[in-house]
Simulated scan of single mutants.
Amino acid sequence: MSAPVAELTRELVAVPSHDDETAAGDVIERWLREETTAGVTRDGVGNVLARKRADGALPEESDDRRSLAFVGHHDVVPPDDSQIRDAPEPGEYEYVVEERNGRIYGRGAADMKGAVAAAMLAFRDATAPDGSDLVFASFVGEEVGGVGARHAIEEGFVPDYAVVGEGSTNYSKPGVTDVVVAHRGRRGITVTSHGVASHASEPEAGENAIYRAAEAVERVRDLEFPSVEVAGESLSGSVAVTEIDGGSAINVVPDRCSFTVDERTVPGERADLEVLAEIPDLEWTVDQDLPPMQCDDEAFAQAVLESARDVHSGEPELVTKPHATDAGWLSQAGTECVIYGPSEPGEAHTRDESVSIAVLERCQETYRAIAESW
């Protein structure tokens, strides 16, 4: 018989949630109401939230008590065709879920319904320390910029501490699930240069917007990347020009050219993109700005690390992560966050996405240990 965390993961992965998270949220909400004594809510955008305390009383979020949250998301990126099959009802479909060689395969298994399942079970089974609340949250819209997390924060969801179940397995070495104490953010920018159009036979009669954009691209290329030291490691940012578009015809000097910049940010630092302001007739807009994360509470990070080591045969470490997650939004709002989850590098968003059942069990045990000792 499959482990409970494997069974719950299979149930969650089977529910499509790349264009509408409602059905997956329904499963999570129903399970929490049936399996726990927590106060369970579903907010206006579809986030599923639950809260409990040791004495069994239903806590009010406004209570002045310390809180620890297990945080995940139940939306996924669009599946590959091989990850979908037709459902019994005409016009409907479901995700393909398979279990083999100790792993569960399917869209969202690694990112991150497996971690959500492990957190749900740990939340149910753990007893919160006296004087504190234990919280569970599964957000919508993480894959499209943290829609659910931002809404929850705006509505007052700011736990004191959070363990976000994004991937941290095999970061320091094979066979361990590490504790991430910082990650990079992402800022996406569109830069537009303006010129004056003219016939290409008389280029001096116009102002070539592509030349102006090329000067801006060179400025971006020469930028120094910021870096910070976290947990004994250097977490470095980056800046790259990723797309360019300009011109209307081979014989026309263009009056407009635009290009996009992908900037990976680090806590407290930004690349000096303001140098672009020195170029005339240039404007830039921020299309997306996902914040980085850094845990500033060393005692909390160490407590999570000790809980992880207690259930490991290996030796997990404090590490950093290159990808932005909902932990960035929570950290920006004032929550001390770490990341601890089953997904391995290269597993998320792939056509053969999968997660190890043994690591799911490890995460479940670790989450419960954290909940009862933090």
Score class of each variant (00 low, 15 high):
residue 1 M to W: 07
residue 2 S to D: 13
residue 3 A to T: 13
residue 12 L to A: 05
residue 14 A to K: 14
residue 16 P to D: 01
residue 20 D to E: 11
residue 20 D to K: 14
residue 21 E to C: 06
residue 22 T to H: 13
residue 26 D to A: 13
residue 26 D to I: 06
residue 31 W to G: 05
residue 32 L to H: 06
residue 33 R to E: 08
residue 37 T to P: 08
residue 38 A to K: 09
residue 42 R to P: 05
residue 46 G to M: 02
residue 49 L to C: 10
residue 51 R to A: 04
residue 54 A to I: 01
residue 55 D to E: 08
residue 64 D to E: 14
residue 65 R to F: 05
residue 71 V to A: 11
residue 73 H to N: 12
residue 73 H to R: 12
residue 78 P to T: 03
residue 80 D to Q: 08
residue 86 D to G: 05
residue 89 E to Q: 14
residue 93 Y to C: 03
residue 105 Y to Q: 11
residue 105 Y to R: 13
residue 106 G to W: 04
residue 114 G to K: 08
residue 114 G to L: 09
residue 114 G to E: 03
residue 115 A to M: 00
residue 115 A to Q: 13
residue 116 V to S: 07
residue 119 A to N: 13
residue 124 R to M: 08
residue 125 D to E: 12
residue 127 T to Q: 10
residue 127 T to A: 13
residue 129 P to M: 04
residue 133 D to V: 03
residue 136 F to I: 00
residue 136 F to Y: 12
residue 140 V to F: 07
residue 141 G to R: 10
residue 141 G to P: 05
residue 142 E to Q: 12
residue 144 V to R: 14
residue 145 G to F: 07
residue 147 V to D: 00
residue 147 V to A: 10
residue 154 E to F: 04
residue 157 F to A: 05
residue 158 V to E: 10
residue 165 G to I: 00
residue 166 E to C: 13
residue 167 G to C: 02
residue 168 S to K: 09
residue 169 T to Q: 01
residue 170 N to H: 13
residue 172 S to M: 06
residue 175 G to H: 10
residue 178 D to S: 10
residue 186 R to I: 02
residue 186 R to N: 00
residue 190 T to K: 14
residue 192 T to E: 03
residue 195 G to R: 10
residue 197 A to L: 05
residue 199 H to D: 03
residue 203 P to S: 03
residue 204 E to Q: 15
residue 205 A to R: 15
residue 208 N to C: 05
residue 212 R to I: 01
residue 212 R to Q: 08
residue 217 V to Q: 11
residue 224 E to C: 06
residue 224 E to Q: 15
residue 224 E to H: 13
residue 225 F to Y: 11
residue 227 S to F: 02
residue 227 S to Q: 11
residue 230 V to E: 02
residue 245 D to Y: 10
residue 247 G to I: 01
residue 249 A to M: 04
residue 262 D to V: 01
residue 266 V to N: 06
residue 267 P to L: 01
residue 268 G to R: 13
residue 271 A to R: 13
residue 279 I to F: 09
residue 280 P to Y: 03
residue 281 D to R: 15
residue 281 D to E: 15
residue 282 L to W: 06
residue 287 D to A: 13
residue 288 Q to L: 12
residue 291 P to L: 03
residue 299 A to M: 02
residue 300 F to C: 06
residue 305 L to R: 11
residue 306 E to W: 06
residue 308 A to I: 02
residue 311 V to W: 05
residue 311 V to S: 10
residue 315 E to N: 14
residue 316 P to W: 04
residue 319 V to W: 04
residue 320 T to D: 01
residue 323 H to A: 15
residue 326 D to P: 11
residue 327 A to V: 03
residue 327 A to T: 04
residue 328 G to L: 09
residue 329 W to M: 09
residue 331 S to Y: 02
residue 332 Q to F: 04
residue 335 T to N: 12
residue 335 T to K: 14
residue 340 Y to I: 02
residue 340 Y to K: 08
residue 344 E to W: 05
residue 344 E to Y: 05
residue 353 E to R: 15
residue 353 E to Y: 12
residue 356 S to N: 06
residue 359 V to H: 12
residue 362 R to K: 08
residue 362 R to Q: 14
residue 362 R to Y: 10
residue 370 I to F: 05
residue 370 I to D: 00
residue 371 A to W: 01
residue 371 A to Y: 01
residue 373 S to R: 15
residue 374 W to E: 00
